[in-house]
Design a protein around this nucleic acid. Structure first.
Lengths: 350, 350
DNA sequence: CTGTTAGCGCCTTCAC
DNA sequence: GTGAAGGCGCTAACAG
């Protein structure tokens, strides 16, 4: 492993000059630069990033902590982060918490020790501990997709608005009894989506039956369980709103096993699209978040902070979710049995 | 940011003693250790990994370079790697090459500069350059899933055998005209799977129609294109073999658009399963590779090399692919029109 | 069992 | 425009 000293000797210059060439910093005469570059090539020299980082206090590395690397939504986000970072000469270390706060905190500590320059964090729960730890160390941070209870730079999708669109769409199809298959109560995306549901129901003059709102977590198994539960209710809901893609798939599976057809017997909508690549025939009506773009934008915000944008304004960037109407909600329901229910305006786009 | 010196001063000991406590190396008296631990806690000290790595020449970090983070097969592998690594106190840096050799080489260089202790590499193509570069630096390396033209530790699925099972299964269903929707010609998994196809056909006494073997790449678009091409042949194949999951989905989509039913009009099998989470109703007959386990095992091999297993034996670990028969190939075809075709033994399991 | 010394590979200051 | 010196935070080697 050649070091900067060997290169310097080989080129007949001082180590500092080699450093200037590597980092394109300071003045180096054209001829000197060439000599150094030739020496670097001849020796196959590559700088040791640990030493660079130790000395310069910058690692050109960002930490990305997310909750489920298995979910295509998050891998798409990761690509957005990665692309934005590498465009700026940064690399990304990706960590997967499995929705566990313990793992999240562990990874945050590790990355801090590795001296990453900044964080994009998808918090496993509505808790400020990890965020606080990172900020105490003075490392820039953007919270992604989920809210935490303290003010901090954030990039997220419009969970409330997207849910509102989905439920309005169902209402327009004639549904009145709509169940929510929710995620973890401690996660803002779950509660915000329920809030959007409530608002849409309220605007339609409908009262919400609490038995129709369930909270579990963002998994297949939870979707399966919640779907089975609400279908056993009397009267059963005519439509289901799954607050994420995995819950939706779990629910669809439960419905299939129970011989319940979608959309003929029950309609279904969900938050988060499944990527094209996973599905032969797109079928679910969804509120699709611009995952890639969100990741990209969060990273650009982070890089701006790194570049010294010390404006004390805390930014909260909220990107709209797009309503995509497909077959799973295409079955119209007859006029409500309840004559007191107001009509809602028809609208398939938000 | 407290350093080891502050901690030492705070505890009234020398920095080296603090180091001994942190790393649990050397002898430290119980009472001293406690004092140091209290100081660490009081100051919120955490060691700087850059400095540790620079000094000790070990980063406790592995590099994982793979070709498509979007594909659930690879994210599952990544989890296997991650779990095996963290059990041993290593962390993993994941890099996505998008099947680009240029990106692969770039990431290898970067990780080398970051002084990772070892690599798990999924080569983007059948080329030894990256592998050679890594070995020249003396960094242990396990090649994953695909072969490269030089001998090196490898963990991979049995592509040839899995393809053989799939095609035998199709033959047992009565198919004789079977098309292969192939991946990149430069990637061993693509060519090995074609080899398995050829062997199965040969064993059944069938000659292979070269028009039925296509090579593109491992994407949806390629699957779509290849399916359209082979269906236009005269006579058209009665069964399709997609050499990976994404090709299969692309092909299924093309078939749907063309109004061709699976399995009634044409049968379909594929290499690599889609994870449960992605599909409501498992439908495709596949040769499933144990992705998680493969990642785990590759990492354990790598860690063994790191731990000093310098046995010069180069290991090539080949894990079997499991034939999973589902609906997409369940339609039997009548006796061959060609009376000279031999019967093959019936067997649904390999 | 603990302290002292030296240096990992690099970059930043400051001279010249 | 270039070189010399010092130190980033830590651990290995050696004393004691």
């Amino acid at each position: 492993m050649p070091t900067i000293y060997y290169v310097a000797k080989h080129a007949g210059v001082a180590p500092a000059t080699v450093s200037r060439v590597i980092n394109d910093s300071g003045y180096v005469a054209g001829e000197t630069r060439e000599r150094v570059e030739r020496a670097i090539a001849a020796l196959g020299y590559a700088p040791n990033r640990l030493a660079q980082g130790l000395r310069s206090k910058q690692t050109q590395t960002l930490g990305l902590i997310l909750t489920d690397i298995t979910n295509p939504f998050w891998t798409t986000v990761a690509r957005g982060v990665e692309d934005a970072a590498s465009k700026a000469g940064f690399s990304v270390v990706l960590c997967n918490t499995d929705e566990s706060q313990a793992k999240q905190d562990q990874y945050a500590r590790l990355l801090l020790q590795k001296q990453v320059d900044g964080f994009v964090l998808v918090p496993a729960c509505n808790d400020a501990e990890t965020v606080t730890r990172i900020r105490e160390r003075g490392v820039p941070l953007v919270v992604f997709d989920r809210r935490v209870p303290i003010p901090v730079d954030t990039v997220r999708g419009d969970s409330e608005g997207g849910a509102h669109s989905l439920v309005r769409h169902l209402l327009a199809q004639g549904h009145r009894r709509i169940a929510v298959l929710g995620g973890a109560r401690e996660v803002s995306t779950a509660t915000d989506r329920v809030a959007g549901y409530r608002r849409a129901m309220g605007e339609a003059g409908l009262t919400v039956d609490p038995a129709l709102i369930l909270y579990r977590d963002f998994t297949l198994a939870a979707g399966d369980e919640m779907a089975s539960l609400v279908l056993a209710l009397d009267p059963a809901p005519t439509a289901l709103f799954a607050v994420n893609n995995f819950i939706a798939i779990g629910a669809l599976r439960a419905l299939r096993d129970a011989g319940v057809r979608v959309p003929e017997d029950v309609a279904m909508v969900a938050f988060d699209d499944l990527p094209q690549a996973m599905v032969v025939e797109p079928f679910l009506t969804v509120a699709a978040q611009p995952a890639y773009q969100m990741g990209h934008q969060a990273t650009e915000l982070l890089l701006a902070r790194l570049a010294g944008d010390k404006s004390d304004k805390i930014l909260e960037i909220i990107l709209p979710a797009q309503l995509v109407v497909r077959r799973s909600s295409s079955h119209k329901v007859g006029p409500s049995l309840n004559p007191f229910v107001k009509d809602v305006e028809l609208s398939h786009q938000n």
